[in-house]
Amino acid sequence: MWDIFTYEFGLLALLGGILSAIMTSLLGTVVVLRRMSFFGSGIAHLSFAGVGLALLLKLPVNLITVTVAAVSAVVLGYLSRKGVHEDIGVGVLFSTSMALGIVMISASGVDSSRVMAYLFGDILAITWSDIWLLTILCAAVVIFMIVFKDHLIYMTFDEDFMKVLRAKTTPVYYTYLVLLAVSIVFSINLLGIILISAMIVLPAASSSLVSRTYQGMLKLSPVISSLSVLVGLIVAWNFDVPAGASIVLVQGVVFFFTFLIKILGG
């Protein structure tokens, strides 16, 4: 049952999956608390336009995609500061960018199997260089969240009071959005554009059902998400199903059970 982890690709998938799980779920907790759950999938879809652009112009895919995602995150953040809710901005750009991506990819004449890799990801194809990148990024996210979690939480809970405190929320907010965008792009290699928003929203949603406070959510979400990666990989290996989908399914099941516990436990 555990023999997937006797292979190097299995261990790399587990390592990469957990690194990605930790960062997306930590950032995702704020996504859920801010009620901008559309944002994750929005950024993922926007980065699809980035993939298309890179393939069309024959430029490095990761670099272009990260740039596109980060810039759109900042633009959406700016719009939300001007009173357009993050989700509305995303809704507008969502389908347009996807269409744009498809058009550019087909114009580039690239083999469609490469496109499938972006849509569905391939966690079993992770390399050591991916792991190093994910480690650095995950460390950055963890440190950022430890230092600035109160900024993010307070500005969600009571933005006016942050102004009274004269706290510098704007740079923190934009840094948060950029980190979220970058984490999403690097997790796309693992889980794909279609499933990545589940990694952001589901663990935080599950933990919000069982923990009373935001502090509890921030501790529980990464645990739930990491365990889902472990279980998801084992399930995928033993039942011969795609790993990304299996991980997301496990997270869905966890959500369903925490929901049951919540309503049965009162």
Binding site: L33, F157, D158, F161, R166, Y214
Partner: peptide, 18 residues
């Protein structure tokens, strides 16, 4: 406030944020 999972003590601590 909309439903937000924050404890009373943490709300008061906001006043000491600086």
């Amino acid at each position: 406030f909309t439903k937000f999972p924050i404890k009373v003590i943490d709300v008061v601590l906001m006043g000491l944020f600086r």
